[in-house]
Design a binder for these strands. Structure first.
Length: 492
RNA sequence: GGCGCGUUCGUCUAGUGGUUUAGGACGCUGGCCUCUCACGCCGGUAACACGGGUUCGAAUCCCGUACGCGCUACCA
């Protein structure tokens, strides 16, 4: 691997779903890689056997591929530095842990969980500035260690943090961050079960996989000194670090499940477009610097830079996402919307209707400016899929006049003489009726809309009529003529 | 408690010492357009956490305070 091609990774732990915060981290990594001609790697951090979730990895990969953040290397896409599952790299971590022990930069610890617990409690009671492991096992004699090993006593491997200079992080987002060594604990590197902790695995893998830039959430900033100490102990070159601001709930706490949807699949299920989700999440912590906010993935690749990521956490606010969804939907290819609409219809009570592509396309065109989600084609204009069963009373009250019956009857007469009327035919004939009756077109338009759709809002009325077609329009008007006068009388 | 990070309109953000009476977007809102609704267009609303410095001049630099968040696990 070449030194000048950036290599970044998204390294989620498979907890069952992809968190929107994770989606943003993945996106920034992806954008950075694509912007700089680098590689985007997916690595699965499955080192916690207690948290194993069946099907989580498949779900994760499925969601990543749905949003379209295709990785260059990762599960099922070998790049010669795999495997990309940490659970399959145990022997590697062991080898490097042994090296560290050999060098004196790590040591075996045989302390029981109970001892650790009481140690912590004592330290807390003594009001020590910080609770840390007391290095008890660092001072075990070789004989004691050999004996413990022979007896197969469970043990872990700890990092040996020595006194020395402050550890300095030069973070792309945050600048220089400094830690004194006495606040760094002798971190566990290898657990009793032989699995590595995050700290060990991420450093070893990032190095072995040639990662040049570590782009991850801010929650990792505090443990970065441990990672730097590990790189130093191995004599490895440090990657560049970029710690991203957190995504927050409305009350500014870390975005969590309790306060709404956090899983990408939740948004997917609600009908959000991947384009909108990506666009929105990109804006949470980054801006292009100009006044643009509507971006395609390609736009973002072109404009992204880590230097323009800012430091404060961002609240996940749904209003802007909804707006972006509408924007992206309007820019979408109509045939793609048709496909999505058919999927929505298949899930709806109209699933048995046989509707032509031509018919649906007309609806898509007519409603495009009036919907934010594909499913709203059905929710907002059910009258394209079934005859009105009710008539909005406030509209009846406001728009149904004494002459409505007569005007509609005349319009029906006029329509029945037409053959395959175009949209324009519906319009000119309506205006003729208005002219003959010496009234404004609105006098007919509103009752017609009400009679054919049951409501007072919708697309242009001539679009509505043309889409429904002459026969259907006449049928609906005749039906309405029987019912609406009674409604009008009742609410008067 | 300790350590670290952060703090510009309700929300997302621009802003890196003078171009700023702090710009844009979402939301909310007034109007125009119009057959309705929407789109679009024009306008309005609303912010530099606080206190000290430094400087001729600070949202921008420094210090302190407050508040928020993160980490402090054989979780990631």
């Amino acid at each position: 691997m070449s030194n000048d091609t950036p290599r970044v990774r998204f390294a989620p732990s498979p907890t069952g779903y992809l968190h929107v915060g994770g989606l943003r981290t993945a996106l920034y990594n992806y954008l950075f890689a694509k912007r700089n001609g680098g590689k985007f790697i997916l690595r699965i951090e499955d080192t916690d056997r207690n948290r194993f979730v069946e099907g989580a990895v498949e779900n994760l990969i499925d969601t990543i591929s749905w949003v379209g953040l295709d990785y260059d290397e990762g599960p099922h896409k070998d790049g010669n530095v795999g495997p990309y599952f940490q659970s399959e790299r145990l022997d590697i971590y062991k080898k490097y842990a042994d090296q560290l022990i050999e060098q004196g930069d790590a040591y075996r610890c045989f302390c029981t969980p109970e001892r650790l617990k009481t140690l912590r409690e004592e330290q807390q009671k003594a009001k020590l500035p910080q609770a840390k492991y007391d290095k008890h096992c660092l001072y075990l004699s070789n004989e004691e260690i050999e004996k413990n090993l022979e007896e197969e006593k469970p043990h872990i491997v700890r990092l040996n943090v020595k006194t020395g200079d402050n550890v300095v992080i030069d973070d792309i987002v945050r600048g220089r961050v400094e830690f004194t060594r006495d606040v760094i604990d002798d971190q566990v590197l290898i657990k009793t079960d032989g699995f590595p902790t995050y700290h060990m695995a991420n450093v070893v893998d990032d190095h072995l996989m040639g990662i040049t830039h570590v782009i991850r959430g801010e929650e990792w900033l505090s443990s970065t000194p441990k990672h730097i100490l590990l790189y130093n102990a191995f004599g490895w070159e440090l990657p560049k670090f970029a710690h991203l601001p957190l995504l927050l709930n409305t009350d500014r706490s870390k975005l969590s499940k309790r306060q709404g949807d956090v899983a990408v699949e939740d948004y997917r299920a609600k009908g959000y477009l991947k384009e909108a989700l990506l666009n929105f999440v990109a804006l949470l912590g980054w801006s292009a610097g100009d006044n643009d906010e509507y971006f395609t993935l390609d736009d973002m690749i072109e404009k992204f830079s880590l230097e323009r990521v800012h430091k404060a956490g961002a609240i996940f606010n749904i209003d802007k996402l909804n707006w972006l969804n509408a924007e992206h939907l309007r820019k979408k290819d109509k045939t793609e919307i048709l496909k999505m609409l058919r999927e929505e219809l298949a899930k709806s009570k109209y699933k048995d209707l046989e509707l032509s592509d031509e018919y649906l396309m007309l609806i898509i065109e007519a409603m495009l400016e009036r919907v934010s989600f594909v499913k709203e084609y059905i929710e907002n204009s059910p009258y394209f899929f079934e005859r009105p069963t009710t008539y909005d009373e406030t509209v009846v009250k406001k728009r149904w006049k004494d002459d409505s019956v007569e005007l509609l009857q005349k319009y029906v007469e006029k329509l029945s003489m037409l053959e395959n009327p175009t949209k324009e035919d519906f319009e000119t004939s309506l205006k003729q009726v208005a002219e003959e009756a010496e009234c404004g077109a609105g006098r007919i338009i509103h009752p017609v809309r009400l009679a054919t759709s049951g409501v007072g809002i919708g697309p242009g009325v001539y679009d509505l009529l043309f889409i429904l077609g002459k026969d259907e329009v006449i049928t609906r008007i005749n039906e309405a003529l029987k019912v609406i006068p009674d409604i009008k009388a009742k609410i008067k």
